[in-house]
Design a protein around this nucleic acid. Sequence first.
DNA 1: CGTCGTCTTGACCAAAGTCAACGCACGTGG
DNA 2: CCACGTGCGTTGACTTTGGTCAAGACGACG
Lengths: 245, 245
Amino acid sequence: MGLLVRKLNSLGTLTAAEHRLLCDHPLVVRDVGPDQDLVREGDEPVHCLLLLEGFACRNKSLRDGRRQILAFNIPGDFVDLCSYLTQPMDHSISTLTQVKVGTIPHGTIADWTERFPNLCRLLWRDTLIDAAINREWMVNVGRRSAYQRIAHILCEMAVRLHAVGLAQDYSCDLPITQGELADATGLSTVHVNRVIQELRGDGLIALNGRSFTALDWEGLKRAADFDPLYLNQLAAARGHSGQVI
Amino acid sequence: MGLLVRKLNSLGTLTAAEHRLLCDHPLVVRDVGPDQDLVREGDEPVHCLLLLEGFACRNKSLRDGRRQILAFNIPGDFVDLCSYLTQPMDHSISTLTQVKVGTIPHGTIADWTERFPNLCRLLWRDTLIDAAINREWMVNVGRRSAYQRIAHILCEMAVRLHAVGLAQDYSCDLPITQGELADATGLSTVHVNRVIQELRGDGLIALNGRSFTALDWEGLKRAADFDPLYLNQLAAARGHSGQVI
DNA sequence: CGTCGTCTTGACCAAAGTCAACGCACGTGG
DNA sequence: CCACGTGCGTTGACTTTGGTCAAGACGACG
C-alpha cells in the first residue's frame, strides 16, 4: 500500500490513523499479461484496482471497432475507483504491458470513507483529478493540431512518470505503441508516425522502442502549449513538489 | 433546493434527515446575463454554484483563442462542485443564456459531507457522472465523424432535458448557437452548419433558432450510435426512470 | 432604419486519413 | 541455427474530410 499512501499524501494529508489503516490493509495482488482487459465496459466490479506495476489505459470502443483511449494509467493510479459509485462500467480498462494490480473490495472502501471523512475527500479528489486530465485531453483532441497533440501527451507522461519516480533526466520507459498513441489522440497510426518524425526532426524528442527522452524540454512544452497545472492542482497550489521538471 | 433534491434522488436515495437538511438550506440566488463567466480558469471559488434556470457551459480556452466546450449545463446541474476539492479551477464556466444560480459555500458542503456519508456519496457520484459524460464527449470528438458528433450531442441534450422536464414530444428549447456547437464538437462553425443541413435533409431533426425537435428519434440515435447508459448509470441499472425517451 | 449576431453559401485549401507495401526486430519451432 | 510468422515502425501515392476566407441573407432589437 506504500504507493497508495504516497499518492494520497500528494493530494492532501493523511492522518496518522488513516495512514495506519491503509498500511495495515492486506492487499490482494494479481498479475496480468499485456493487452488484457482488467475491467470491461458493462461489468459491475465488486472491487477497485490499484495499479502497482506496469501500464494500462482507460478506453471506450465504438461498434465499428474504432476506439478512443481516455487516459493512460501508470503505477500508483487507482485505476477504477469510479466503479465504487457508478455501475455498470461505461468504459474498459486494458493493460498495455504486463502489470501487477492490487484489488480492494468496494465494501472496504465504503467502510474507510464512512469512518474517515478526510480519507473520503482525498479519494474523491483523486477522481476529480482524473476528470481534470480528461478535460485537458478533450481540449487536446478537439482543438489542437496533430503536432501539438502528440507533444502534449508526451509532456504529460513525462511529468506524471517523474512524479512517481519513473523518469530521470527527461527520459523514461514509455511502453506505448504508435497505434495506441493514435487512439489516445484521435489520429491515425500513419499520421502519428509522421508527426513523431517531425518532432524528432525538430530536435525535441528521442523515441525508440519503449524509451522516450525529451531532448528539449522547454521546446517541447512550448510546442505543446503545455501547462501542468491540471495534473496536481492542490499540490501546485500549496507549493508542494509541484513543478517537478 | 427542490431541483437539487430531485437530482440527488435520481442518483440514489436521500435519507429523511438529508432531505430536511437540503430543504431547510437558505439558497442565495444570483441572476447573471448571457455570455458571462460564472467562474474563470485560475479562480479559487469559495462556494459552489447550482444552476437553477438557463443554460451554461464548461469550457477551456487555448492561448490563441480557440476554445473547447467540455459540457453543456442545464437546470439542476451542480455546475462547479469540483471546485470544492480541486483548486484553482482548471477551466471556466460560462453562461449561454440569462441564468439563475444558487450559491452554496464550500464550508456548508464540508459540513454536510462530514455529517452525512450517504449524501457525500451522492455528491461524489454526481461528479463521477460528469466525468462519464466527459468520457463520452471525448469519444465523440476523437473518433466519430462530424455527422455522428452533432447527432450524438443532440441526442444527449434531448435525453438530459427530458429528464428534468424541459422536453416533451422529442422537442425542446435549445439555446445553443452553431458556433457553440462547433466548440463542443471540435469542428468549425461552417462545417457544423453544413452537417445540420444534412441532418435536416435526412429528415432526422428540425432545428430553427432555439427550438429543436427530433423528427426521427430512432434514426437520430442510430446515426449517432447513441447509447444513453453513460448518462444515468445507477438509475438505469436499478430500473428507475432510466430510459426516458 | 441601421446594426449586430447568427445562419447560410460558394470557392478553394490543407490537414489528416486510407491503402498498400516494405523493413526490421524478435520470438518460436523445426 | 535458421526459416518463418508476427507486430510494429516507416514510406509513398492518393483521397477525403473538414477548415478557411469571404460575402450575402435574415431576424431581433435599439
